[in-house]
Design a protein around this nucleic acid. Structure first.
Lengths: 201, 201, 201, 201
DNA sequence: AATGAATGAGTCTTCATTCAT
DNA sequence: CATGAATGAAGACTCATTCAT
């Protein structure tokens, strides 16, 4: 009896936490971190101030949790992309395309990642930089995996150019009005091509 | 006589404005936009609140002015780079290198441009996006200038990838501890090569 | 059977109440009334919020109960001191010494009584003042018991001076670092002597 | 011109600071530290929140400033009392009487000193304890000044008993309803007598 | 022109207490 | 009897901006 009850509670707790995260995703994406107040998140999620601070240590913690979750979903996408191909170069292309498509299909998350997370204090910046850095490191690893002689320049620099190209393309696409946006798949493919040529392929 | 006096006053006015801008540059770069308060800028520049609001409409205006100034200095650099070469591709390479070098030699300005300007309200974002966009447009123009057949893909996408690569390289370089930073000229050159290969050269 | 069960339950109830009181004693003494939160007491006593409010009407009630308990233990000490002597003056001396020794051996309780209980609202202050007042009244009674002519001044004032001297000596002793504290028995004796001289003995 | 203006401003600043301190004195004495909110002090002094934080770092700082001021006024009284007599014992008596009379004529200040300052965090307690300790030290010094053989017991303990007697007498007197209060001068004299006898005089 | 004291709306955060399970 | 999630009123404090001097 006790266990069943507990289990139900756990479900409810998870559900309420979700409601907070979802409300926060929308608000942070629309208004930015600073312009989003805790009362707004509380109102949007139909909960109470006290409940908010039961689930999150403070506003910053909420943002970090959100960022971590987005990071996980992103990693998942990248893994799937890698697993969908066997050859390194094909994997790299697939990864770029998948990443671009995921971000432009989840504009709120993308905005939080590429726009909002910047210029905030301590833990937040760390978390966001880490997400981008981990991408850069993957690319770097892949570059090192290529048959000898394929790529001769500094792979770290190339990896960051690579990542920068993708994210800037996302920013560009998201910045366009809805009716002027080219097909995501096409853009994704062009970004991938740019990057692959960039590394000499 | 009157003119001379006025002229002296204008000099003083310009000097004080400069002091505000310089103080703001350091503070915004070090602490970010939100964490920098008007009183801080006032204290740092050794002036008074009243004077501040005589020179700037408000805090946002200060940031925009700063951004505009940085934009001008950037444009100057880019123009010089273009004028230093005659061939389009050489100009494009020179531009990337010059941009990279300028930003890493002016880290406070770079930070303001690539880190702080994001996620802020209205006018600020617009100003910052415009600076980056104008770079992207230049690149795009250059791409279109190339002899027919040289570059066949969507030049707008490539231009954004190009710009993204440069700025991400700057972020990467600025994020490194001082003693681990590779020589700027080398990185600048690699970024330029990455981009040139990216557009098929 | 039923009785035995009930009895066991009552034992358990008493035990849990004790756990709350003990946890509260430590926390109130260490952190003060305001800085101690109900969740802290709950955590420290390994119980739950709900249980807390089953045993105590509210936080204030907890403090009052604690104070009453301390008051009872104090009264017990004083009674024993009185019973240990037959002559009034000897009883008064014994009382002061016993009181001092009891308080400095129970610093948490002492702190709650002489430091924390002050400056709090309504019921709490009343309870604490009453404990001190009852001491003062005992002293006053004793003074009146003395053979005529022994003590001629206002006994109420003297009684409060007497009590104030003891408590201030306790505060002083508790405020010293552990390694600089003189032997309690010696101080207790000096305080008693001071007071006895104070009333003309 | 500038100087005159500044001087006027300084006067105004001092006046406003006074208004805050006066409002705080009443409120702290009536309601205690915790029950007094910054908005209350602001309202009572007819000022604004911002002004409050212009003059005081925070609520605690206000209390400490108040305490320091009371400490100064107290010290002034004690000095006058000492100067009014030449003989040590007469000075000690005068001091007790002056202190008692000052406190009962300034009940708000007395309450703040003997009631409210306890059980508060860090700086506040330190400040209050220091005020009482400095009295105790004066008494101790005086005791050591007495002709040899006059007082043989531990002067530190006696000094604290002495101080405790005075403050407890004040608490007692302030705790009485207005119409039951004996004449302050009489009580002051009795307290002094109690203490002098306490030290063997 | 310049100063800096004054304003007050707006935020985050805490915590005693309740009540559904 | 017990649990602990949920509530929400309340309070301290910040800071962009104004304006009397």
């Amino acid at each position: 009896m006790v266990y069943r009850t507990t289990s139900r509670m756990e479900q409810r707790k998870a559900a309420r936490r979700r409601r907070f995260l979802d409300a926060a995703t929308q608000l942070f994406a629309e208004r930015g971190y600073q312009q989003t107040t805790v009362p707004m998140v509380v109102a949007e999620s139909g909960s109470s101030t006290g409940a908010f601070y039961f689930y999150f240590a403070n506003k910053e913690d909420l943002f970090v949790q959100l960022l971590l979750e987005i990071g996980e979903r992103l990693a998942e996408q990248l893994n799937q992309a890698v697993e969908s191909e066997v050859e390194t170069l094909a994997q790299m292309r697939a990864t770029v395309e998948r990443l671009f498509l995921f971000l432009v299909s989840n504009p709120a998350e993308a905005r939080i990642l590429v726009l909002e997370a910047t210029s905030l204090s301590g833990r937040i910046v760390t978390t966001q930089v880490e997400i981008l850095e981990s991408h850069a490191r993957s690319v770097e690893q892949a570059l090192k995996t290529l048959p000898e002689g394929t790529y001769r320049a500094n792979p770290t620099v190339a990896a960051h150019c690579w990542v920068g190209a993708v994210y800037q393309a996302v920013r560009y696409w998201l910045g366009l009005p809805d009716d002027k946006r080219p097909a995501p798949a096409v853009v994704a493919s062009e970004v991938a091509s740019f990057n692959l040529r960039g590394i000499g392929q």
